[in-house]
Structures are given as C-alpha cells and as structure tokens.
Design a protein around this nucleic acid. Structure first.
Lengths: 208, 208
DNA sequence: CGTGTTCTTGACCAGTTGGTCAAAACAGGA
DNA sequence: TCCTGTTTTGACCAACTGGTCAAGAACACG
C-alpha cells in the first residue's frame, strides 16, 4: 500500500476550519476558566461540534491547551523581539509599550490565558519561561543597559522596567472587568490607558 | 426548651480552629486553581479533614469561596482607605504603594484569589466592585485631584494612577513564577521591586 | 456511479465531583 | 458516672468528566 508520507499533515479545508474553530473555542473557555475549570463539553458547544469530534482533531484536552500555549508564546514575544538596538531608545521602548497595549486591546483572551497559566504556577509553561523568555529578556536587558550607559534613557533596572511594562499593559486585559466596574459607563478604558501610559513612560524614561 | 438565641453563632474553640483551617486550605487551593478548578477533596486534604466534615462547617463549596472573597474585600482595601487627605500628598501615595507591595509579599495567595476571580469575570464579586470599591475609588480620586490642583503632585489621571499602583504591585504576587523564571536564582524579587517602585513613583509623582 | 478515505456521532465507560445521611465518636457539665 | 449536644465519618448518590469505539454520513475522485 502506497501513501504519501505525512511529514506535515496536509490539512484539508475541513480540517483547517475545524481545528481553528476548536482552538478559538478553547481559547474562549480556557482563558476564563483556566485549564482545570474548563470542560470539553463547554469547548465543544462553543465550537459547534460534538465532543467526540473534538477528540478526532486533538488527542486530549491537554493537547488543545498546549497547542494554544505554544502558539501564544511565539506571538506574545514578538513585540519584544522587535525592540531594535539600533533604533532611537525612547522611541523603541514607547513603541514596545504601545504594541503591548494594543495586544491587550485586540487579544484579551490570549492575555488572560497566559495570566491563568502563570497564576496556576505555569505547570505547562515553566520550561518556556526559563528558556525562551528568559533568554530574550536577557538579550534585550543588555540593550537597555547600553542605552542607559549612553545616557539615552533614565537609569532603571531593565528587568523591572520590563515587568512594569507587562504589568501595566496586561492589567487592562486581565482586570478588564474591574477596570470597567471602577470607571463606570461612558469610558473607553483602553483608549484612556493609551494616553495615560504614553505620558507615564515619557516622563519615566527621560534621562534626568 | 430554652436556649440562647444564636444571633452570632457562639463558635466553640473547635469550631474556630476548624473553620480557620478550612478557610486557610481553601485559600491555598482556590488561589491556584480558581473556583471551578478546585475540588472539595483537595481542600479537605489540605485542611486535614474529611470532606463531609468540611460540609459540616460550610453548607457548600460556593459558601467557602464567598466567605473568602468577602473577608478579602475588606482587608484588601484597607491601605487605600487609609490614604489621608490631610497628609503630605507624595508621602501618602508612596506609603500606599509600599503597603500594597507588602501585601503582595505577605499575602500572595489572597492576591491570586482576587486575580482569579477577576479574570474569570468576577461572577461572585461584580457587586462589590461596582459598589464598595467604586465608591472608595471615587472618594480617593477626588482627594488626588485636589492634590493635583494644589500642585502638590504631578498631573496624572487618578483612576489610572490607582490602576497603575494595583498593576505594578500585584504583578509581583500574581506573576511570581514568571518573575522568578526571568530573574533566575539569586534574586529577591520583592526586595528589588521595593526599591524599583520607590524610584519609579518618586519620579512619577513629582510635579514638574 | 462506485469506492476508499475522511468526518461525525450516539452509546458507552470508568473515575471524579459536590453533596447527603444515619450512625458512631466525642466533649463537657451536672 | 450519665446525658445531651457537638463533631466526625463511612457509605452512598446522581451528575459530570475526559475519553473510547464502532458504525454511519459525507466527501473526493477516478
């Protein structure tokens, strides 16, 4: 029996559509309930498929979760990867802040998925955190240190500067409900956050 | 049959001990797994009690969760309540930041419990957020606005200034695993955060 | 149209879950 | 000591959970 070897599974139109629907539904559910709190039935319902059908496309609940997490890890770090050592320091960092905030606006579910995983102790991501993430942070921290040494930006610990950016931007996705409850109706939290953080980091980064 | 009316249930020594053990165990489990992800068996095991015994002290899983949440809501807001309109503005706000960071250091489980609830959409807390919390924020925002008008601190939107304080301080509790993974061994994240945030807010609040 | 492949599903299973209950063990005052 | 109220537990239950499986439905393609 001859058959084409599936190095990369060829993915028919139907396969692509359904795996996408599943991942989208799973993102919705996992990002709210966390891994343990989510059920295959919820995901199946959200995706408009039967539960056995989910398990035709993914071998297990965990496989769906891992699939989301690894996909996320890549795109999530893109803005930091793009921080250009050759660029104008303040401009580069402000762009980073803006892009991270845009991600909170456009991909809040991804942000919550990430937050859920970390709060839980990152059982399925600790490797990526200590590997990929850490290396990238180390690389970019060196860049930031150079900028500080050159007097281009204020003297701020690079690690904690990055933590601050993450905390301040992701807060608007992860704590969205709280932010809206406090602000009340008639506000556009992410627009306001945009100009607020713009001002904040402008003042903060300016060398004294 | 005569009996003293239980206006406040009298709480024997055993009752106090066990309800406390249960709440403590529940905090441990809920703060990591979220409400849906946690099980009564886990909580019972953590508390060193049998599952039926848990349900002798609390009527349901949800009752335990609500009990934790309401207790939390009070103590969580204390530092903000203590913000003194008569105090020295910068000093008052710096004290607030410091106290919030101390809470992240000393009560990380409480912080994660809170984060979990909010990320989930705050199903059991939305009332408190739109009520208690919102009112307190409104009150203190007015104070901050006065300080700005008097030129005592920099011109920053009070709401988003508070969000920033929450985000930056709670990040060190909620994302502790990530922070440690990135920093690597040989760091004391919360000590570093202390001086970093001190510097950050000092520069930020200073009127120009 | 026929036929092999891909896709879908109802029925099912074993383990887990929140919660009940009656009976037993225990505490402490008279 | 006995007695009454409190505390604890083993056995149990119905609903839910992740996952399997065999058989049928839909599809692609010569």
């Amino acid at each position: 029996m001859l058959m084409t070897v599936k190095v990369q599974p060829p993915k028919t139109r139907i396969q692509r559509k359904n795996t996408q629907a599943i991942l989208d539904a799973a993102l919705e559910v996992f990002s709210r309930q966390g891994f343990r709190g989510a059920t295959l039935d919820q995901i199946a319902a959200e995706a408009g498929l039967s539960k056995p059908n989910l398990l035709y496309y993914f071998p297990s609940k965990e496989a769906i979760h891992v699939s989301l997490l690894t996909e996320l890890m890549t795109t999530w770090l893109d803005p930091l990867r793009d921080l250009d050592p050759e660029g104008e320091p303040v401009e580069e960092l402000m762009t980073y802040v803006r892009r991270k905030l845009e991600m909170s606006r456009d991909f809040p579910r991804e942000s919550r998925l990430f937050a859920n995983e970390i709060i839980q102790g990152a059982p399925r991501m600790i490797g990526a955190l200590e590997g990929e993430l850490r290396e990238l942070v180390e690389e970019k921290s060196a860049v930031i240190r150079d900028w500080i040494a050159a007097g281009k930006i204020a003297d701020l610990d690079p690690h904690h500067l990055l933590f601050s950016i993450w905390a301040l931007t992701q807060h608007y996705a992860d704590f969205d409900v709280q932010v809206r409850a406090v602000l009340g109706p008639g506000h556009d939290p992410l627009a306001e956050a945009g100009s607020f953080l713009d001002g904040l980091f402008t003042r903060l980064l300016r060398p004294e």
